[in-house]
């Protein structure tokens, strides 16, 4: 049995007539201690769940903001094991918040897939999304995810065929990462609010609740995403931009992150 934190979260939010706001940051950005403070701040300011990256040298799905976050973490010596240490602390501090990892396949393979998922489960991770593992390569990861009680998250791109959506409905649970547009991560290009047709198809193929991501940086976009039928919104580069803008002043960084998350969360109220 996978963890029930996502299901519990979506049920609670539904009862309160809210969508989910999920910030993304890179674990270890800019260093271990500050990263812990950052992630705690996100939860305390109202994040419903966390989407967390593991730094990788060659992030092909990421734009400049997330690339730089990874480089900062790597330069401060953060590697996968340090990330698991940080994740364990976050889990201790926040027992109920769903924690998802978003990372690249080579980090998983270098550890051995079994070993990586076992370590992630031990650190209290609920879900894993591998940016460069499409449905077609996903089966062996899904099998091991299930053995470790972890949700394997799949991506529904705006150009997804019915065949792809059907398979996502059958193979993944927890939530579905709904891509708001083509391209790489970043606020340079804004999200496109999904067509009602796509949301209807997601319902038809019974995919796990869709969280819309890519290009989300304002409360208006969050509100639009949820009104269009998404279960919530993920905001990565906008969150990481606040870290990058305040690297020399941690107090201001945390204060700015806090107010950003509060505003984005407020926009999830239907």
């Amino acid at each position: 049995m996978s963890t029930t934190r996502y299901a519990d979260m979506f049920a609670n939010l539904k009862a309160k007539n809210q969508g989910a706001f999920v910030p993304f940051v890179m674990v270890g950005d800019p260093n271990k201690e500050t990263s812990l403070a950052i992630i705690n701040q996100l939860v305390e300011s109202g994040a419903d769940a966390l989407e967390l990256g593991i730094p990788f040298s060659d992030p092909i799905a990421d734009g400049p903001t997330i690339q730089k976050a990874g480089i900062r973490a790597l330069r401060s010596g953060v590697r996968t094991q340090v990330c698991f240490d940080i994740l364990s602390e976050i889990r201790n501090n926040h027992p109920t918040v769903p924690i998802g990892l978003l990372l690249y396949s080579n980090l998983v393979l270098a550890n051995g897939i079994d070993n990586f998922y076992a370590k992630a489960a031990a650190a209290g991770v609920d879900s894993i999304l591998i940016a460069d593992v499409p449905l077609r390569e996903a089966d062996r990861f899904i099998t091991i995810a299930k053995q470790n009680n972890i949700h394997q998250i799949l991506i529904a791109p705006p150009n997804a065929s019915n065949e792809t959506l059907k398979a996502i409905g059958e193979k993944s649970d927890g939530y579905t990462y709904l891509l708001g547009r083509s391209g790489v991560t970043g606020t340079e290009t804004a999200v496109e609010i999904p067509a009602a047709e796509l949301i209807a198809k997601l319902t038809q193929f019974k995919v796990a609740p869709p969280l819309l991501g890519f290009g989300i940086s304002t409360p208006e976009q969050v509100a639009n995403a949820i009104q269009s039928g998404a279960a919530g919104a993920i905001s990565g580069s906008a969150t990481v931009n606040i870290i990058e803008a305040n690297l020399t002043d941690q107090d201001k960084m945390l204060a700015d992150l806090g107010s950003f998350v509060s505003r984005m969360k407020a926009a999830t109220l239907l």
């Binding site: 092909i60 799905a61 460069d132 449905l135 077609r136 991506i155 997804a160 792809t164 891509l179």
Partner: peptide
């Protein structure tokens, strides 16, 4: 080999 790319590029 294989196709270890974002889902977006598969089509």
């Amino acid at each position: 080999g294989g196709m270890y790319v974002p889902e977006l590029l598969v089509p």
